[in-house]
């Protein structure tokens, strides 16, 4: 199945694999937050609406909501973050992934940015 890596203006990355999207925060986002100390994960089975804050990432001096890029059901969360929240800093695109949402039907990702578009977007931030 083909995979597609997309980005949001809230500095989340979205990896689309069919009707499942995996969500994390970008390198830029983790850099801005500083040392991540806790990730308040949703529960598997939670229903989320597109645009809803469904995860909270805490650093020592800041806190960021992670917004659901699509509507659907949380089917898996990265439990490793419970013990090792620093993975979000060390490996934001890989071991620091946060949650997976199963979309009803096909994920509507038209509003999301490609890697190139996101890099352009960052220049303007």
């Amino acid at each position: 199945m083909s995979e597609k890596l997309l980005f949001t203006k809230e500095h989340e990355w979205v990896l689309v694999k069919g009707d499942v999207v995996r969500v994390g925060i970008t390198d830029y986002a983790q850099e801005e937050l500083g040392d991540v100390v806790y990730v308040d994960l949703p529960e598997v089975g939670d229903r989320v609406e597109e645009g809803e804050g469904f995860v909270v990432v805490e650093s020592v001096k800041a806190v960021a909501d992670v917004y659901a890029p699509v509507s659907g059901e949380v089917i898996s969360v990265n439990e490793e973050l419970d013990e090792s929240p620093e993975l979000v800093n060390e490996s934001p695109f890989d071991r620091g992934w946060i949650a997976e949402i199963k979309v009803e039907g096909v994920a509507q990702t038209g509003d999301l940015m490609s890697k190139q578009e996101y890099e352009e977007f960052l220049k303007g931030v």
Partner: peptide, 12 residues
Amino acid sequence: LQAREQHIRREK
């Protein structure tokens, strides 16, 4: 654990 507090989280 200051991310709980008003000076960071404000209305949340």
